[in-house]
Nucleic acid binder design. Structure first.
Lengths: 164, 164
DNA sequence: CCTAGATTGTTCGGATGCTAACAATCTAAA
DNA sequence: TTTAGATTGTTAGCATCCGAACAATCTAGG
């Protein structure tokens, strides 16, 4: 589907192409498959769950973070969602325009902006997240439960090594 | 570092916040840690390897694909790199402007555009990829070798379930 | 031949996504 | 109390990113 070569054909070609070089192929396999799978999962979730509601990936992530943490400071959302505060400004503009989220100046600290979901935004997440999780379940079903645990924990270790 | 909460604190909060709902938490953990780790790895590689050469992530991915496959048709690069052909057009403009890649019309099929690296582009990849792989090695060292194999294979299965 | 349909890369409009610079605000040390 | 420095969100400028529409080109059926 993704072009002329399958995943495994591509990996074999790369190995041959780089043969002789002093390369850690196992480490390369971890990283490249991390990106391949993340891209595939994101595309799948965008098409199956988000697109019908005209939601972008980042818009959904912001909704998710605010939904989970009730009300959030902007700086916190950006860190949690994984992109810069400048990017968040744009996404919040979009969400406000669509009536899904609202901004409010903090009274305690005039620099801070507090974000909350509108009732429309809340209703959307209560409807959308179960569908999202059904797709997550579909995706994770590529692995048995023991393997799911192992993979999640291994990915945590990678994240912690780089952020911890 | 990433905001006020650690990774594991965040996961516990989410579990409590969604308690009572009919949610597959294990599947959620796989997907969310997939994105967290992919984001962390990408940010790390951008800062440590790509930024010093003023290369964006997508520019590097395109260089990588063309380097590995020698000369590539545009449609193939887009599929392999994981983004749309519209995006590729922009990235190729940037790479051409910087003298790292070149476009050429195919003689066999007037619709096709063939992309190759300039000698400057080749030289850059020969210098850059070993550094890139060193960082991949650093990242993968969060796991022992057996775990690296397991994770890579599990991620392959996820990709194949969605693309296969 | 010839022409309807398929394929390819680009363009267009809009939404991310980044760093750097900025104004507003808070904090703490003199 | 004052003021230098730190923090926060926005803006500006640029480079991705996408889907949809488009022109150029190829392919088949007639």
């Amino acid at each position: 589907m993704a072009g002329a070569h399958t995943l495994r054909e591509t990996e074999r070609h790369v190995d041959e192409r780089l043969a002789g070089m002093d390369i850690d192929f196992q480490a390369m396999a971890v990283v490249s498959n991390l990106f391949r799978s993340a891209t595939a999962v994101r595309n799948h979730l965008e098409r199956s769950v988000l697109a019908p509601h005209e939601l972008s990936w980042s818009a959904f992530v912001v909704l998710w973070v605010v939904w989970i943490w009730e009300t959030s400071e902007t700086r916190e959302i950006a860190a949690e969602a994984g992109f810069s505060k400048a990017t968040l400004t744009g996404v919040l503009n979009t969400l406000e325009k669509r009536g899904l989220a609202a901004r409010k100046r903090s009274k305690d600290d005039g620099r801070l902006v507090l974000v909350s979901l509108t009732s429309k935004g809340k209703k959307l997440m209560e409807q959308l997240f179960p569908l999202f999780n059904k797709e997550e379940q579909h995706i994770a079903s590529a692995l048995n439960v023991a393997s799911q645990k192992t993979v999640a924990e291994a990915l945590r270790k990678i994240t912690e090594k780089l952020e911890g």
